[in-house]
Nucleic acid binder design. Structure first.
Lengths: 150, 150
DNA sequence: AAAAAATAGTTTGACGGTCAAATTACCTGG
DNA sequence: CCAGGTAATTTGACCGTCAAACTATTTTTT
């Protein structure tokens, strides 16, 4: 069994369907006006307090201009609060509104199911190994892969 | 330390990173006018002969209208050939041109390089566990693909 | 302290990707 | 032959994205 083929096949198939399915999961729920992209922005903002635009944009790997547009729509729909920082008036701080937090939690159930599917039939030890492997890959993609041959 | 949270976070970030890197790899390569979406369409058409629009659209999970637009652009750029079927003149058959085939092979080498880079980062044990986890993830998306409740 | 440079965010203009619904062209079964 | 079904395209409306220009503010330099 060739691990490379498995990885490649899985990656290709996953990338082809993951967005479609996640989009469907989000839009059939209680929060019909939330796009998949909206949800990713909300995930990046997170539940814990305020973040500035640049930080969130960087974590999503989009420009701040792109994030501005996404946040405009989320503010209009009532999922995100936006305020200017008092310490540095160039900075804009964004956070999830109560409605945004509820939508976030609603969607996190989808992720929980996904994780359950992944880890079922993995032993505790295998789960640890997987965590380590993914962390390594994450590091790799954040640093090396962006600069080198790809 | 909650392993499930770690896994979830890493998966979300990895998917984002890989998408960004793939997009960048495609557009900075030899075939600069090919978008990531173009490449996915070419993958769905495949190397083996002609396919009709409906079949390709279904395999990509988009409407035929969406595919028409993508194929218009691919034909204009010379990557795809499009002919009407003689047996059933409603049907349009699409296939990769020689240039399209070269682009497809070029991109598949990118996949190989990326997979190699990933595999090199991981121990044998980590590779095995990752393969198992991705297989589970793939099954999760395939089996929940057409269910409605989340 | 004034001028210059840097930083944070928004706006603008242009594309690409998506869908639903209307439309065109063409089978096919009765 | 025609009524209904099927394959694909067109249309109109959004969303997501970027680069580049711009505004407002802060920091650095002189």
């Amino acid at each position: 069994m060739d691990i490379r083929n498995t990885l490649n096949e899985m990656l290709v198939r996953l990338f082809r369907s993951v967005n479609v399915i996640e989009e469907r999961a989000i839009r059939t729920g209680e929060y019909k006006d939330v796009t998949a992209n909206d949800m990713h922005v909300m995930e990046a903002i997170g539940m814990d307090g305020m973040k500035n635009m640049t930080r969130v944009a960087r974590s999503l790997e989009v420009t701040t201009g792109t994030l501005t547009i996404a946040v405009n729509s989320l503010v209009r729909k009532g999922y995100v609060d936006r305020v200017r920082s008092e310490e540095d008036r160039r900075v804009v701080l964004i956070s999830l509104s109560d409605k945004g937090k509820r939508a976030y939690l609603h969607h996190s159930r989808f992720h929980e199911r996904m994780i359950s599917a992944v880890v079922e039939e993995l032993t505790d030890e295998e789960q640890q190994v997987l965590g380590k492997a993914l962390t390594k890959l994450d590091q790799f993609f954040m640093t090396t892969a962006h600069q080198t041959m790809f």
